[in-house]
Design a binder for these strands. Structure first.
Lengths: 345, 345
DNA sequence: GGTTAGCACTCGATTCGCTTGAGTGCTAAC
DNA sequence: GTTAGCACTCAAGCGAATCGAGTGCTAACC
């Protein structure tokens, strides 16, 4: 036995209905609400076939059927109608992002809350992540008598600044001179490379050994990951509106997962290159999320870094809606980040 | 009728028990578990009195009594035994903060998660907030051909940096010269004052008008609040472990509240000066939190800024435990921030 | 007078059985 | 191949019965 056109149509109707209502759908519902010109009995036979094929599950014998992960997969792959999103939603998105220039963190926080508000699911936004950034400018800014701020500008943005200790009294001109020398020497290199170059400089500039040592330590500490990325999350509470999470225990494990941002980031980030990803239930690879689906899209900045936006919702998700929202938002962010220069973090 | 010593002891036992179990406590429980040398009948009489005095509520006639907000107030004010916290918890706290230097945001994120892990409630940490910071150094760091990073160091830390557009090609020496002039002129002034001084400078330095205009816009935008403070939250999912929140709808409103960080910050921040605050139920002034309590403590940095750490939990909270944890954590943070120079953010 | 044993009473929670109704699977007729 | 019809299943909803924790009151006791 295999899929034919009619089975397809019936399956689609079942999925549509289930996504809408969240309750198992029966044969009568399909034959009445979606006029197929078939009686419930016929639908019943087809549903029985669809179950055998693995597209439908039956919670118990006298309930309707619910779509399986396999069904959703088929749905997003081929039979989903990619609905045009209503204009007002779209307007909301762009209205929120035109206007004044933003900080990176504000932008992604905001993006997360807009996405979650529009989709009514949980949204996650990861900041742009580049390859090894290359240094462009190094500057030491005096903060107090004995401390200076290290500001490193790279081609992908600034490395999170932090203070280092200054050996003795050093006026701002001296610091500037050292900054120039450092910039000269380190420009175009990655942080890791800088860590190899610095010892040589320390040899040559004995008089500033202490300062440079401090800088070396600073670089060494963050050469691996320029800074722990700021993960923006929005609408975690939305999940509680869905009957799937009326079980408190389930809700709790979900929320705990949302709290461990590192783990969350790695789940969302996925394998990377795909512009659009839909992972359904078990496909997420996360045991806690067997009845969740994750949809992600990417955006990029002028300097070619890629960021990820994602939505987490129940497997019974309004995939087409979510995908079009993510699509719009992805473009919006890409626009925003290529327009201005807000690649700093 | 008024409170006597015995009533006090009974009330304390009731509160202790209720905090522990979360179920209404009956007279028999008290007379058996807490050996008062009194029969349940006597306790019953006393409980009846306590109810009349407004310290106890009775959910329904055949259930035990639960402490009222008034009772908790009395409890934290006078009859709570400030338990020594177990050593391992304390160790956990300090272990997490010794070691390498941290970024401000990392520290407060971390503090929130440690507090929530120790208390099993929801923790909120607000970054240090000073009065009007005074500028110390202004420096423009070239980022690209047509953009520069503005770094403003104030007596309380750095103002969140951001880029402004550069008019034409400007080399780093020119930028440095301008930076020096700006520093000269603006040192010691608040951001708001700077906004009044700048127009004059623009008059005098016509050749850099465009750049200075950009800077002016930059300052103007953040003179009110140097930057939207980063609020760290931990353990929101902990709340779901308490029967108080087994009602999904309740949980949802609580979580939504936790998501609006601005509102949350203003709730936690409170009136400010008190080193220790305990607000019980209605005292929080937030309708959504009538059955929550908020305990806050403060910490301070070397430059005298004050930050707030807080715990939100059910009114039936382990107040003494929470207070001692906040106390320790407050000291820990104060130590950390006065030891190093991590007043930048 | 304070304390306590005893008892009737209340009322939420639990259990049990019954009914209802949505939905299925099968069969026989079209 | 489609459909009407029917027996069957089973979760959910409902109400009565039961249970038990806990109270308030009274009368006896120290």
């Amino acid at each position: 036995m295999e899929m034919d056109d009619r089975k397809m149509k019936i399956l689609q109707a079942i999925i549509d209905d289930y996504i809408l209502t969240g309750v198992p759908v029966g044969s009568r519902t399909i034959s009445k609400k979606y006029d197929m010109g078939l009686s419930s009995a016929t639908i019943r036979n087809e549903m029985s076939d669809l179950e055998e094929l693995g597209y439908l599950d039956q919670p118990h014998v006298s309930a309707g059927r619910i779509p399986s992960a396999k069904a959703y997969r088929l749905y997003v792959d081929s039979l989903m109608k990619t609905g045009r999103i209503r204009d007002d939603s779209l307007e909301t998105v762009s209205r929120h992002f035109t206007g004044r220039v933003h900080q990176m963190e504000d932008v992604i926080d905001h993006a997360a809350s807009v996405i979650s508000a529009l989709t009514r699911y949980t949204a996650v936004v990861l900041p742009p992540k580049g390859k090894q950034p290359r240094m462009q400018t190094v500057q030491l800014v005096p903060v107090s008598r004995d401390a200076a701020l290290v500001v490193i500008v790279t081609d992908t943005g600034i490395v999170r600044d932090s203070t280092i200790r200054l050996p003795g009294d050093m006026d701002s001109d001296t610091l500037y001179a050292i900054s120039r020398a450092l910039t000269e020497e380190l420009r175009g290199h990655t942080l890791a490379e800088a860590c190899e170059i610095l010892p040589g400089m320390i040899q040559r500039m004995r008089e500033n050994e202490e300062l440079l040592q401090g800088l070396y330590g600073f670089l060494n500490e963050r050469k691996e990951s320029p800074s722990r990325p700021h993960v923006a999350i929005g609408g975690t509470s939305n999940m509680l509106s869905y009957p799937e999470y009326s079980d408190v225990e389930k809700a709790r494990t979900f929320l705990s997962l949302m709290e461990t941002r590192d783990k969350l980031a790695s789940i969302i980030a996925g394998d990377g290159e795909m512009a659009f990803t839909v992972r359904i239930g078990p496909e997420t690879g996360v045991p806690e999320m067997v009845d969740c689906s994750i949809v992600t899209a990417t955006y990029s900045t002028r300097s070619g870094q890629q960021g990820t936006i994602g939505v987490i919702g129940p497997t019974r998700m309004q995939y087409s809606r979510v995908m079009s929202i993510l699509n719009i938002m992805g473009h919006q962010l890409t626009d925003l980040f290529s327009r201005g220069d807000e690649t700093n973090e």
